Amino acid sequence: MTTRTIERTSKKLWFAAIKPPMYSVAIMPIWVGSAVAFAETHQFNASIFFTFLISAILILAWENFSNDVFDSETGADVNKKNSLVNMTGNKSLIFWISNLCLAAGLLGISTIAARQQDFTVIGLILLCCGIGYIYQGPPFRLSYKGLGEILCFFAFGPLAFAATYYSQTKAWSNTSLAASIVVGIATSLILFCSHFNQVKDDAAIGKRSPVVRLGTKRSAQLLPWICGSLYALTTLFVILKVFPVWTLLIFLSLPVARKLCKFIGSQHDQPQKLTFCRLIAVELHFWSGLLLGLGFMLTQLV
Rank of each mutant, 00 (worst) to 15 (best):
66 S>E: 10
72 S>R: 10
113 A>M: 11
137 G>M: 11
87 M>D: 01
60 L>W: 00
96 W>R: 09
58 L>R: 09
131 I>Y: 03
76 A>S: 12
150 I>Q: 00
80 K>G: 03
158 P>N: 02
97 I>Q: 11
52 F>L: 14
142 L>C: 00
163 A>S: 12
135 Y>K: 08
50 F>I: 14
154 F>M: 02
65 F>G: 04
105 G>Y: 14
86 N>W: 01
109 I>E: 10
96 W>A: 08
69 V>F: 04
103 A>H: 02
160 A>L: 07
79 N>Q: 05
163 A>N: 10
95 F>E: 15
103 A>G: 01
90 N>V: 11
72 S>T: 13
73 E>S: 03
85 V>H: 04
160 A>I: 06
90 N>C: 03
101 C>Y: 02
109 I>F: 13
93 L>M: 14
94 I>Y: 05
95 F>Q: 15
111 T>C: 12
72 S>D: 13
160 A>K: 01
113 A>C: 09
54 I>H: 05
140 F>V: 02
145 K>P: 01
65 F>A: 06
130 G>T: 02
138 P>Y: 06
126 L>I: 13
114 A>K: 12
72 S>L: 08
92 S>L: 12
108 G>V: 11
54 I>Y: 05
156 F>R: 07
110 S>W: 11
49 F>C: 04
127 L>C: 11
73 E>K: 08
56 A>Q: 08
56 A>T: 11
118 D>T: 08
124 L>I: 14
164 T>K: 02
155 A>V: 00
139 P>N: 07
64 N>W: 05
162 A>N: 02
110 S>E: 07
129 C>A: 13
61 A>G: 06
60 L>V: 04
136 Q>R: 10
158 P>E: 07
107 L>V: 14
141 R>G: 03
156 F>G: 00
56 A>L: 12
82 N>V: 03
147 L>R: 13
73 E>G: 01
97 I>E: 12
110 S>F: 15
60 L>T: 05
92 S>V: 14
117 Q>F: 09
87 M>I: 13
137 G>A: 15
53 L>P: 07
87 M>H: 03
98 S>A: 15
107 L>Y: 12
90 N>K: 07
91 K>D: 07
94 I>A: 06
154 F>I: 00
128 C>K: 05
89 G>Y: 07
138 P>H: 11
119 F>Y: 15
161 F>M: 13
95 F>D: 14
62 W>R: 02
57 I>M: 15
71 D>T: 05
59 I>G: 03
164 T>H: 04
57 I>R: 02
156 F>H: 05
73 E>N: 07
63 E>W: 02
111 T>F: 15
66 S>N: 04
58 L>D: 10
112 I>R: 08
83 S>M: 01
73 E>L: 11
149 E>K: 01
80 K>R: 13
53 L>Q: 09
79 N>W: 02
102 L>H: 05
147 L>Y: 13
82 N>L: 01
81 K>W: 00
138 P>S: 10
144 Y>Q: 11
139 P>E: 12
100 L>N: 04
126 L>H: 08
159 L>Y: 03
160 A>G: 05
128 C>I: 06
124 L>C: 11
65 F>C: 06
115 R>T: 09
130 G>C: 11
98 S>M: 00
145 K>F: 10
52 F>C: 10
